[in-house]
């Protein structure tokens, strides 16, 4: 009986630390979840016209912020290539703070999993989407609403366990 209080305190601390240690402080929850994709007007790679967020509506898709200078993007690239080849989902690339020759060379070398690539050379769209470190991937439903954000490289586990189930429900 006299050990009740210390034991309770110890159990409380263990629970607190267990939660704290499994919580990655680098993953800042996005306030944009549940909100429509932020507006932008930017050029497309290899095309003359500007596109806007309206382009992202009508089907569920991934919006992947990436760059040729980004290490994590090379890590996730095979996963995106596989998703694109298996036609699991449409992927739109947001080329963040990059130079045209660099990104062209990068895509030639690693392959292109993107249906379209938006050129965010100044990082303005990145700012409006709350991007703080590429790669970051936003999951949009058919209404163009952000339903999930993957911070850091896309993984097969994240796709299978978190994103695919969300999109299965969002398919029209």
């Amino acid at each position: 009986m006299r050990f009740l209080v210390p034991v309770l305190v110890l159990v409380g601390l263990i629970v607190l630390f267990a939660v704290g240690l499994h919580h990655d402080p680098r993953e800042v929850p996005s306030p944009l979840i549940g909100k429509p994709a932020p507006a932008f007007r930017l050029p497309l790679l290899g095309e003359e016209k500007l596109v806007s967020e309206a382009e992202l509506k009508g089907r569920p898709l991934l919006v992947n912020f990436f760059a040729s200078w980004c290490e994590g993007c090379q890590v996730e690239h095979p996963v995106l290539m596989k998703l694109a080849q298996e036609q699991q989902v449409e992927i739109v690339g947001m080329d963040y703070k990059d130079a045209l020759p660099d990104i062209t060379r990068w895509l030639q070398r690693h392959g292109n999993p993107y249906r379209k690539i938006v050129l965010d050379a100044q990082g303005t769209a990145g700012l409006d989407w709350g991007v703080y470190g590429v790669p970051e991937t936003f999951v949009l439903n058919a209404e163009g609403v952000i339903v999930y954000k993957q911070i850091g490289p896309m993984t097969e586990d994240a796709w299978r366990e978190k994103i695919a189930p969300l999109l299965a429900g969002a398919r029209p």
Partner: peptide, 8 residues
């Protein structure tokens, strides 16, 4: 800023 990045 909080609209984009949250209270963080």
């Amino acid at each position: 800023l909080t609209d984009r990045y949250g209270d963080f």
